[in-house]
Design a protein around this nucleic acid. Structure first.
Lengths: 234, 234, 234, 234
DNA sequence: CATGAATGAGAGTTCATTCAT
DNA sequence: CATGAATGAACTCTCATTCAT
């Protein structure tokens, strides 16, 4: 997706038209603030500072524009989640890794995340792509959880599919809390605490509890901090 | 809601117009299947089997119709949640009660819940009411959690507001899983297991663990099941 | 029009239903304040304090309602104008009489006059009745003027038809001045002065001047004629 | 207006869109024949030979279209009237000038005048502009008459404001007579005679009568009658 | 590439009119 | 007589999409 280098412009333009990206960027912003249905192509064009006929040079129609916004935003997120889910580490590490990916995405581009969450993930009658994509992520985590379960990290009575859904439910609710202004996104410490609570809450609910007498996010910050990122299992 | 007797004002007083309820019901169904933006007033009218203009006899405009769908659905849900949150019982019982209320609502009228979740709770630029209502519920739970925290039921380092949000995040994601077809709503046992996982997952994450060494979904099912306040039928 | 003694009840009901008159009255008021097109039947009904289905008991449709408002208001006015125009007296007396009738009508029921002037006399594509009625009045005055012309009261070169139209033009503009608030209708003296100026202005323009050899506004007729800037043809 | 050359901005600068003018022209015609309320935007579009939506490309809504029709027609008329009223000449010359401006406007574009008179000047609940504009013209003439009165041209007992209103009342009634078909607009001579009767009628009513100390409609009819203005040719 | 005028189907809303009670 | 729920045609306005320049 990012390698569209074959420039159509003759001289030597880089991968993707500058204009196209401008429009995409504008679309993210406008969708985020007014919603997909609440905005007009003209709004996107104005935000991008181009004539609105130009939008149709780069995108077949409004829906494809939304689709592209989705792809662009989602593919990066998905790739990072997959890297974590299929990489090395304990389940705990992976869960913290996934939440970190999510929160980082929000920090970098909250608007894009908002569009993903609000406009796309739940749009009724959504195109196949979107539902599929969302399911893909859950599927990915389900597999991760199944492997963990097989390895004894996850309690056997937990349903991996539902647990995967809940993981994203937690993440999404965290975002919602951000979007609704319940947490100040500019306070890194609060953000990190929220993230840890989300990951921790999930983990407590599903982790096998054979060997961990300790509190998830005990007063002993060092300890808990140490746990989050790196993982350790005594 | 279930007593549709023939006469207009036979037994229960003046009530609400039969037709008005028919339209409201149709609106719920149409919104649920095609989304607010994707449906036309004509669809609602056809679904209700009434003339186009009659919708406007009972509702000022499309938006007020949505608003009313919201109020109608939400107020009942909210009242039940409040009864549980402000009633008697341990935090654990209450959390199980709240999730039970939510799942019961879904069982009774999945379409209405879908509209609440998909169309309203997240609609961008939503009317004050909707956002407020959602916040109200979280506020309610926050207070419940604060009291529990003061009583030592909740670990002190947990942020009640965020925890309240996460509780609803869990519930909502459970619904989403249902809506997306990940759990078959007609299988009561699966439903109950999902509910218990959601409640349990949340509780594990926040409960003080001095007094309850036991797992919520331990083998000893009777106990935890018994706690489920609302929908238990011993 | 003024003898509405009868009771509404069946036993001794006179000519017209009480309710019907109430509705008619309301129609006059509503038409006067919001215009024919700007109001709904519901407005008339509300103003009259009746259910709006009732309007259709007494009037076939909205247009007939307007028509009736017109007839009711116009017939009285027309009858009085005719009495003056076809009665005894000099042309001067008659003209003063006609203006007096008009101003009196305004004093008694300004709203009705406003409807007559604003809504009916000039409505485009008006029904035959309305135009006819207006023309009838002009016709009436034309005949009056023709007789006066034959009697030497009117200068021979004056066109009676145009003069008749101008008479009503003067009257109407006087009303317009009232409607627009340029003259306070509650000041009888000002009203009378306005009326006299209107009648006088008209009379000056058309009366025969047997004994006035002098030019109206300059001794030198040629000169003044020559002054007519644009359209003069020496 | 008459130079419809092919190119968009060939000779006269940027101007106004050709299409916009076409639509405006069509609006005048349609309003004139069916009235503002009686016509649909579709009628205007069809008359103009353009697509429905284009009307909304150039005008915000139906009301703005009417407003623009008004401005366009009125501003030209008003400017000409002002040029006369504030220019050089005797009161008599000016009054003749003003009536000439009005009749000329009718000759050039009777439809536009009809819309001005029938649809706008009297529309109930009209926008500020319209009423204001009408008042402006009367105000203009009132000032003209006041100056004339100070100069002794106007009889002192005449109220300039009312007289100004009556002048326009006369003019307007002349138009009405034309609109109603009482005078054939294609007969220049009849038109001119009507115009002169209107101007003369007004002048007789208000001009100072240096040689006539008597009341306008005194008992001494002969004298006052003598002043008839319209058509005498010594 | 870029522009924005032009198109027209579609949707929300109004309201005159009917009719069962 | 009286009521107001019910009907649906008509109309305004929007906006995605096309296309000539």
């Amino acid at each position: 997706m990012s390698q569209e280098q074959g420039s159509k412009a003759a001289e030597g333009g880089p991968r993707e038209s500058e204009r196209r990206r401008t429009i995409l960027r504008a679309a993210v912003d406008v969708f985020a603030s007014k919603g997909y249905h609440g905005c007009r192509i003209a709004d996107v064009a104005r935000e991008a500072g181009v004539a609105y006929g130009l939008v149709y040079h780069y995108f077949k129609n409004k829906d494809e524009l939304l689709e592209t916004v989705f792809e662009t935003g989602w593919s990066g997120f998905f790739a990072r989640v997959r890297a974590v889910a299929q990489g090395e580490g304990t389940l705990e590490q992976k869960v913290h890794g996934i939440t970190t990916v999510a929160f980082e995405a929000y920090r970098v581009d909250p608007r894009a995340v908002k569009v993903l969450i609000v406009e796309i993930a739940r749009s009724p009658g959504g195109r196949v792509n979107r539902q599929t994509a969302f399911m893909d992520a859950i599927q990915l985590c389900e597999e991760m959880l199944s492997r963990a379960q097989a390895a004894g990290e996850l309690r056997p009575e937990v349903d991996p599919k539902l647990a995967a859904a809940l993981l994203f439910g937690n993440i999404e609710m965290g975002f919602t809390a951000l979007v609704f202004g319940m947490v100040d996104p500019r306070d890194p410490e609060k953000m990190e605490r929220a993230r840890r609570q989300i990951a921790g809450s999930f983990l407590y609910g599903v982790l096998a509890r054979d060997a961990d007498p300790e509190a998830p996010w005990s007063k002993d910050q060092e300890k808990s901090a140490a746990r989050s990122k790196v993982a350790r299992r005594s």
